[in-house]
Design a protein around this nucleic acid. Structure first.
Lengths: 213, 213
DNA sequence: ACCTGAACACCGTTCAAGT
DNA sequence: ACCTGAACACCGTTCAAGT
């Protein structure tokens, strides 16, 4: 799908330009700024012009999601033991989408068809599972389980520090309130990172035990 | 905060009425129908009238979320071993919010202050962890890890059956495509339920091992 | 083939005016 | 104290008209 020669290529709109403009817009001003008219303005074009290249805003989000999936680091699967590779991949995956929460419903609910980077990511992960001896028919369920934990953890990474502050209702939940106030974690780690590490270690260990058993 | 006597109580607006109307609206027509004007219409009132009782639409969502949290079954923590209780609670939690995906960012990102049912749920879960011998300072992280998995799984429960269909790009991801086509699970269980059970068992087993070790 | 400009059918929220 | 009605500043999307 190359541009025809003999035409000035700089000002022509295309899915690539739209994706790059959307990423830049989100990086600078966040998802509240990613509107069809805001996107059009950043491309010096009328909003309706976008609809010659995408069918809907959902389409734009899918393009952005697929571009970001290319930033998820799957390289550990080619050079490390399964458990360690899963941990590194999961951390990278969470870190990428913690900054892009509105895309999580897009990843979780939209078919991967026509999302080449996303498919490429899944292929690398599947390869790692196969090399570790996982039976083909269990691999997708295991990946989905890990992804579910990663998506939920991406939300949690954006939770405010006082999310569990019970306020005036503290006396009705004494044990919970006490547990919350004792939550303090080792220096250098915030609460979300500690919960993520705890859950990820448990999940990886539990899945490894399932495979062995 | 009772109504003053001597006035007709039937037509007066309040947070309770708003919550019930919102729940009914969502149950009948889904979250796309939960707009401030739609909600007002269902209460035979002008949209602006709602702002005498809630500060924003986010406020309405928080009210709905807290009401639904009362439907999450925590009773198993009072009568069953920890691992089994966690499994039953997690299933109930996922099932309640699988039908209310737009509330997941609300639960994950908004403080629990002034959400009494939510706090009550956390108290019951914390009690169960304490009785099982969990140290206070690890309980909140463990609950957060389980919740992250539950939220992600609630999304996955709404994924279309063909979410992993690679389409024209199948030949570029042969191992993944093969794993997807072999995913078929035992009769009576769909894919989401199988992935949820696999991950939940692994997480519970891994957490139990953490506690023991 | 791809753009503009106007229009449509919505959103959430505010606020003066009433009772 | 709590409601109405009008208004505001947006949304995503469509479509006739141009080139």
């Amino acid at each position: 799908m190359r541009r025809r020669a003999g035409r000035p290529s700089q000002a022509l709109l295309g899915q690539g330009q739209i994706t790059r403009a959307a990423l830049k817009l989100v990086a600078r001003d966040g998802y509240k700024a990613l509107t069809m008219s805001g996107l059009a303005k950043s491309l010096n074009v009328a909003p309706s012009a976008l609809y010659n290249h995408v069918a809907s805003k959902q389409d734009v989000l899918l393009l952005v999601e697929d571009a970001l999936m290319g930033r998820v680091d799957v390289s550990a699967f080619a050079r490390m033991p399964w458990a360690e590779a899963v941990r590194l991949w999961a951390h990278s995956y969470r870190d990428v989408f913690s900054a892009h929460l509105p895309l999580i419903p897009v990843i979780a609910l939209l078919p991967v068809t026509n999302a080449p980077q996303t498919i490429k990511m899944y292929e690398a992960v599947t390869d790692g599972f196969l090399r570790a001896g996982w039976p083909q028919e269990r691999i997708v369920d295991a990946i989905v389980a890990l992804e579910s934990f990663i998506f939920g953890s991406a939300y949690d990474a954006n939770a405010p520090a006082d999310i569990f502050a019970t306020g005036e209702l503290a006396e009705e939940a004494p044990h919970f309130s006490a547990a919350v106030s004792l939550r303090r974690n080792p220096a250098g780690h915030n609460d979300a990172d500690a919960a993520f590490a705890l859950g990820l270690d448990a999940l990886v260990a539990g899945l490894a035990a399932t495979l062995a058993g």
